[in-house]
Nucleic acid binder design. Sequence first.
DNA 1: TCAGAAACGATCAAAATCAATCGAAATCGA
DNA 2: TCGATTTCGATTGATTTTGATCGTTTCTGA
Lengths: 259, 259
Amino acid sequence: MIQEAHPALAPERRDRIRSLVREGGVARVEDLRKNLKVSVATIRRDLEILEEEGKVKRVHGGAVSMESRLEESVFDDKTSQASKQKKRIAEDAFNLVGHEESVFLDGGSTTLFLARLLKQRTDITVVTNSVRAMEELADSGPRVIFTGGEFRRISQTMVGPLSSAILEQIRVDKAFMGTMGFCLKNGITTTDPNEAYIKRVVAENAGQVILMADSSKAEKVSFARVSDWDQVDILISDHDIPKDFTKTLRKRGIKVRLP
Amino acid sequence: MIQEAHPALAPERRDRIRSLVREGGVARVEDLRKNLKVSVATIRRDLEILEEEGKVKRVHGGAVSMESRLEESVFDDKTSQASKQKKRIAEDAFNLVGHEESVFLDGGSTTLFLARLLKQRTDITVVTNSVRAMEELADSGPRVIFTGGEFRRISQTMVGPLSSAILEQIRVDKAFMGTMGFCLKNGITTTDPNEAYIKRVVAENAGQVILMADSSKAEKVSFARVSDWDQVDILISDHDIPKDFTKTLRKRGIKVRLP
DNA sequence: TCAGAAACGATCAAAATCAATCGAAATCGA
DNA sequence: TCGATTTCGATTGATTTTGATCGTTTCTGA
């Protein structure tokens, strides 16, 4: 058997597979084979090992990443419209981040997509109270400041008075927020009062507040009130949002972006 | 046998191998041979030694570094002696945690083993600045308070003045600390001054300070001084620690446990 | 539901790597 | 200087990894 000039070491190759699977969320065996220039048998064997280690989950035709909690939750509806919209919203938000700025990311899947994009940047500072965003940025990328506080398992975020201890000491250029619901009458609402409180503190200490919410959140009202619309500078949503909604918000001086 | 003009001394060569492996994360035997101009047999022997020392992990075709990424696979490497000792130390520490107590865990692999054990408990509160410990406890287990602050990638911990903002507001019953080195003369030392500072703040706000360090750390001195021995209440180590070490510490009122 | 296609798992052979052994060279102590 | 010890390199048989083949299973579309 003739080996190539530089046959990648087995762990090296598996690491490569791992990140390829993680990047795309899923990967086909055939694509991996072309990318790594080894036989499908080797790919399969590697996937078997990676599955034992719990890094990926094998499926017919390829494998799914088990490392990113982002995929874990989004996987089942990866192709769904909602997920695509969230991704587009995140990409649009990414373009708003300027050079050497500091940004805040709160919990939620939309901001998590943004976190993944921000991984490329090393010139910025990311402040977050989301453990998932933290994990996403743990290996490389921007400077990260984590708020700390009490851990809330349901949302995988840090909440409570201890969190604000740090938040009050810092100021960010832009705060990217998710939400459970927003409507013209009640403003922004979310499920947990503690989380609502954190969002308020952040909004007060941010240059710009950018709300990222797909149209499924429109006209929804949740339990805990976060803030009124006058706190929000920009809303990024999608085209399925009611027309009069956009119109009213723009009249109130809020920039509405529909990528 | 004809030696070259400058036959590198054996330890010198092993040091070279070590850094080569660390730089690339991995290195194949053939490349090392070309680089160091010795036979593959020598390279293999060196790798064998370096593996025993825990510096690298041998794989078919070469070796991977155990130093670069803060051992992503602490839990995989169940066979190594060092890992076994750490586990035993963690199990002993686990028995010290009383009902409804609050404990602090800092970074490092030994405390990570403890974190895994603490996952069973739901009556306690865990305070930590280690992202790894956080992840370990993210799904279920005790109440978790995270210190937050600036993220230090190398150690995967939170450090800096922002961290102390939260730490100063809380008090724990027991603080479980790891360390890079400890000796009778210089006390506890670690690599990073920021981390040393956090450890000091924690020690001041803890009822008991419990140092978890296997014998490989004994008589090692690192860059940043953490504290003197009078801050420490209990040392958990193993039987390979020098006898006079134990004796002296006990004379100074420190409980030494060797599980 | 059924047939064709794609993907899978098991098996085997080739190639590379590894471990063990032995002998040569260098170093050290007397 | 001599002999013992250590370190290194080469050889050889064993082991591991990899790729190809082939029968079986799973998926897909009619």
